[in-house]
Design a protein around this nucleic acid. Structure first.
Lengths: 325, 325
DNA sequence: CTGAAAGCGCTTACAG
DNA sequence: CTGAAAGCGCTTACAG
């Protein structure tokens, strides 16, 4: 049997209300009783039961991270930032994985209805406007990472700008036929990056050629895999009118692409996206996203909202940075 | 206000006990009332409150993963396996990060005392025998991944064997001065791999030379980083008596090591450890650990124990596999 | 098959 | 500063 506040109360000769107050740091308790209670609690090895606390106080003290799949680089880094921030708070962190194949909105709505957390951190969750609207009606603290919607606090990176930088750099270096190694087009960041790609071309009066947009066949993880990158690059290199440079929507795909180039002993300049830690070690040029910071500040702004419901909505948009290697 | 069983009970004209039974699939409820209750629950958008359920039933339906840091490759893959298994069960997954710098045993003991989960999955947690002994006294279901202790269910890989395979392969290929690119010596797997390294040397009558054991200066994450690998390889390559091959205790370090070799334009054969997905794409030979399977089966054996406390303890030990690239 | 009732371990106005 | 008491939303013997 676990120790309860009743055990402590009895031994300390006080009421359970007092014990409860001690643990809630309600400053009204006298120092002496506070100390006595604490000592006895330690002695008995007391730990408050989260479930009882939650039920009684109607607070869960939990933050729920909602994300597609957790085992990917971007997510890992963002999560690192979230954890860093949470270290200084007393919130517990839960993670919910949106199952692929099922409607994400439905899953999220269910989760929200369960009310198992006080605040929600959405990572790379992309919904329709009408769906965001509906979620907004739940009027529960939500912060978005890697997505933007005016009604919610958010931290994202200007994907259009990132792609624009990469492609512009190629153009300025004299390249004309620039391939876009893309991923699943349902992904919003992917679409934005395509925008940036087009914008750069247009600005330099290079006609858009849709044959230069290539995707791997592997659709697992929206195509953000080494394998998908490998496949796409193989197909790029074997196409009749070979491109002379390639912008790739993620580093992980770019690493697959590098391998493909090596395997057929051909090489064109490549720029990836994300700047995952590995990029530096495999000599990959890329567009840097401050992933860790994004996690950190999104968490901060979520907590701010949780403690102050009517603070103004903040939408932070980072500018990505071209890293040449 | 969230919908409760009271609301449903009233609307359905039954008692709350009946509503509760419907949701607990207690088969004693008549099909007609069951349907009626279900319909009303859906209509009202009812979701049971986990905290109330937990308090009343004294069950949490949670599994807690306890691990050092989550943002590393090994952890990610193992977690993938855990999640795969959990998909078919109704347990919720929580993750607790052991904070570096503080005593891990103390942290774990606190967590266990809180009793916030019904089963615990330890990933890469290495304690003293006396500490495992103490944890065993809590008589709560615990399964170990990447660690072995006779009293707990566990899934691990024979680290000594893995290192032995790698080093033996080098020796058979004619190499004599084989460096060991190591990591933090407090890590049990690292120590076991050192064992295997020594064993292979001994068997082939090659004297052990401790100058061939190299570690990076970066101790972050126990030295399992690209950076630490890079540093170590730089120092290896600049040592007076340069080795002619190198076995590295993790792929992530090996990738750093590859970069180091490139930077100084030297190259010696390298074998890593883990077989992370990237290894294939950077052409890294390695010792494969079935990380995903480990997560999957450890979870399975934990759940088995949770449902059947006195099943025999199972210690699964995988044999690693040499992958040449 | 169903209901009344006690209880899970806390929190928190309300008095004093 | 402290206590008595109600209540959080469920579950589960115990009767019937």
């Amino acid at each position: 049997m676990a120790v309860t506040i009743y055990d402590i109360a009895k031994k300390a000769g006080v009421s359970i209300a007092t014990v409860s107050r001690v643990f809630n740091k309600s400053s009204v308790v006298s120092t002496t009783t506070c100390k006595r209670v604490m000592n006895i609690a330690n002695e008995l090895g007391y730990y408050p039961q989260v479930y009882a606390q939650g039920l009684a106080s109607k607070k869960t003290n939990r933050i729920l991270v909602i994300a597609p799949i957790m085992s990917n680089y971007f997510f890992m880094e963002v999560l690192g930032g979230i954890q860093d921030k949470l270290l200084s708070c007393s919130y517990e962190l839960n993670i919910f994985n949106v199952t692929l194949g099922k409607d994400p909105f439905e899953q999220i709505e269910h989760i929200l209805k369960k009310r198992s957390a006080e605040g929600y951190l959405f990572i790379s969750i992309h919904l329709r406007k009408s769906e965001w609207q509906k979620l907004h009606k739940y009027s529960v603290p939500i912060a978005l990472i890697d997505e933007y919607y005016p009604n919610f606090d958010s931290v994202s990176v200007d994907n259009t700008e990132g792609a624009y930088q990469a492609v512009s750099h190629f153009i300025k270096s004299g390249y004309k036929r620039i391939a876009l190694l893309s991923a699943c087009a349902t992904s919003l960041p992917v679409r934005d990056r395509l925008e940036g790609y087009k914008k750069a071309l247009k600005e330099h009066h290079i006609p858009f050629d849709k044959n230069l947009i290539v995707t791997g066949n592997t659709l697992y993880r929206d195509g953000f895999t080494e394998k998908a990158g490998y496949e796409a690059m193989r197909s790029i290199l074997s196409s009749p009118a070979k491109p002379d440079a390639c912008f790739c929507v993620s580093d992980i795909q770019a690493i697959g692409a590098q391998k493909a180039m090596q395997d057929v002993n051909q090489s064109i300049p490549l720029i990836g996206y994300d700047d995952i830690k590995l990029a530096e070690y495999v000599g990959l040029s890329t567009i840097r996203q401050p992933m860790k910071d994004m996690g950190y500040y999104a968490t901060q702004s979520l907590i701010d909202r949780m403690t102050n419901t009517d603070k103004a909505v903040s939408n932070t948009i980072y500018t990505p940075e071209l890293i040449l290697r």
